[in-house]
C-alpha cells in the first residue's frame, strides 16, 4: 500500500478505536471489550447485556456519531474555505455563519427552546447570503472582498445578538452554553438529518477535488488552465455553508476544528486535495470526538466542548506556527 493510503487507513482505524473508546466512557463505564461484544451479540441475536445496550444505543452512540459527523463537516468546510480563499486562517465561520447562528439562537431562546435550532439555521444562512451578495464582483465571488464582508456581517450579527441578550431577559446560561457549543442534546434524529445533508452535499464538494489543487494557484491561473472558477466557488462554498449552518444549529459554535484539521492534514499527508480532503475529514472527526469525550467526562459535570476544542486547538496551531512549516513548507 502506498504511504498516503496507509496514512488514511491509519486515521480510519484510529477513528474506529476512538469511537469504541468514547462509547465505553461515561458515568456507567462499559469495558472496552463489552462494547464490541454487546453490539455483536445484539446483531447476532444472541443474549446480550440489556442495560449496556440501552446505554450504548440510546445515549452514547447518537452522541458519538454526531461528534464524528460534525467534526467531519467542520473540517471539510474549513479546508474548502482555506483553499478557495487561499488563506491559511480560513475557517468554516468565515462567511458569518457563527454570528448569524448566534443571533438566530438568541431570538430562539426569547421565544421558545423549540425554535432555537430552526432560527439558528435560518439566520446562519441569512448571514451567508448577505456575505455572498456583497462579495460578488463581475458575477464572481472575490475572495478578498468575501473575507472582509464576512467580518463585517459577523460584527453586525454579533452586535444584534449581544443587544438582544443584554436588553431582554434571555436565558443567559442557555445562550452561553449554546454559543460555546456542546453535543449534550444529541439524538438519533440529529444524526439522521445531518447524515442525509452530508450525503447530499459532500459528493458535490468531493466532485471538485481535481479543481481544488488548481484553485490554489490563484483564480487567473486556474482559469487559464480551464477551471470554471465561478462554478467551483459557488457550488462548494454554498454546499459547505449549508451543511455547516445545519451542524451549527444543532450543536452551537464549536471553534478550531475547521481551522486546525486541514493544517494537521497538510502536515501529515501533503497538499493534494485527493488525499488532504479525506485526511482532514478523518482528523476533524477524531478531534471533535476526542474533545467531546473529554468534555462530558469532566469530573465536575459536563463542560461545553467548544472550550475543549479551543484548549486543544490553540496550542496545536501555535505549535504549527512555531515549526514555521505553516507558510513556507519545505523550506
Amino acid at each position: 500500500m502506498k504511504p498516503k493510503f496507509l496514512i488514511l487507513f491509519s486515521l480510519l482505524i484510529l477513528l474506529i478505536l476512538n469511537i469504541l473508546f468514547s462509547i465505553s466512557i461515561g458515568p456507567v463505564r462499559i469495558p472496552f471489550d463489552s462494547v464490541t461484544s454487546t453490539i455483536f451479540y445484539y446483531f447476532m441475536g444472541d443474549p446480550y447485556n440489556r442495560i449496556y445496550m440501552l446505554i450504548i444505543f440510546y445515549i452514547r452512540m447518537p452522541r458519538v456519531f454526531l461528534a464524528v459527523l460534525i467534526g467531519a463537516v467542520l473540517a471539510i468546510s474549513g479546508l474548502i474555505t482555506q483553499t478557495i480563499f487561499r488563506n491559511p486562517l480560513g475557517d468554516p465561520y468565515l462567511t458569518g455563519i457563527a454570528s448569524g447562528a448566534a443571533l438566530g439562537a438568541s431570538i430562539g431562546f426569547l421565544i421558545s427552546p423549540f425554535v432555537v435550532e430552526p432560527l439558528a439555521f435560518a439566520f446562519a444562512m441569512l448571514a451567508v447570503f448577505i456575505t455572498f451578495i456583497i462579495s460578488r464582483v463581475d458575477g464572481e465571488f472575490s475572495p478578498e472582498i468575501m473575507i472582509l464582508a464576512g467580518i463585517a456581517v459577523s460584527f453586525l450579527f454579533s452586535a444584534l445578538a449581544s443587544y438582544l441578550i443584554y436588553l431582554k431577559e434571555v436565558n443567559l446560561r442557555g445562550v452561553l452554553f449554546w454559543l460555546l457549543g456542546g453535543l449534550y442534546g444529541a439524538n438519533w434524529n440529529d444524526v439522521f438529518y445531518l447524515t442525509i445533508a452530508s450525503l447530499i452535499l459532500f459528493p458535490l464538494i468531493l466532485y471538485f477535488v481535481p479543481e481544488f489543487d488548481l484553485m490554489l494557484m490563484g483564480d487567473e491561473q486556474a482559469k487559464s488552465m480551464g477551471v470554471d472558477t465561478k462554478r467551483v466557488k459557488l457550488i462548494t462554498l454554498l454546499s459547505s455553508s449549508i451543511v455547516t449552518s445545519f451542524a451549527v444549529s444543532m450543536v452551537g459554535i464549536i471553534g478550531f476544528i475547521g481551522l486546525v484539521s486541514p493544517h494537521i492534514g497538510r502536515k501529515i499527508i501533503g497538499e493534494s486535495h485527493r488525499f488532504l480532503l479525506p485526511a482532514s475529514i478523518l482528523i476533524g472527526a477524531n478531534l471533535l470526538l476526542a474533545s467531546d469525550t473529554i468534555a462530558r467526562s469532566n469530573p465536575g459535570g459536563e463542560i461545553p466542548v467548544g472550550i475543549i476544542t479551543s484548549f486543544v486547538g490553540a496550542p496545536l496551531l501555535i505549535y504549527l506556527l512555531i515549526r514555521r512549516r505553516f507558510f513556507d513548507r519545505g523550506n
Binding site: S224, T229, S272, D328
Partner: peptide, 29 residues
C-alpha cells in the same frame, strides 16, 4: 473557459507558490 484553455495559456508575471507540489505534479496540472 474549458474551450478557451485549449487555445490559450497564460503564464503570469510574478508567481510564487508556497505549496508543496512536486515539479512533476505541477506540470501535470
Amino acid at each position: 473557459r474549458q474551450d478557451l484553455a485549449k487555445l490559450i495559456s497564460y503564464v503570469p508575471q510574478i508567481f510564487y507558490t508556497p505549496y508543496t507540489f512536486t515539479v512533476e505534479e505541477f506540470v501535470k496540472m
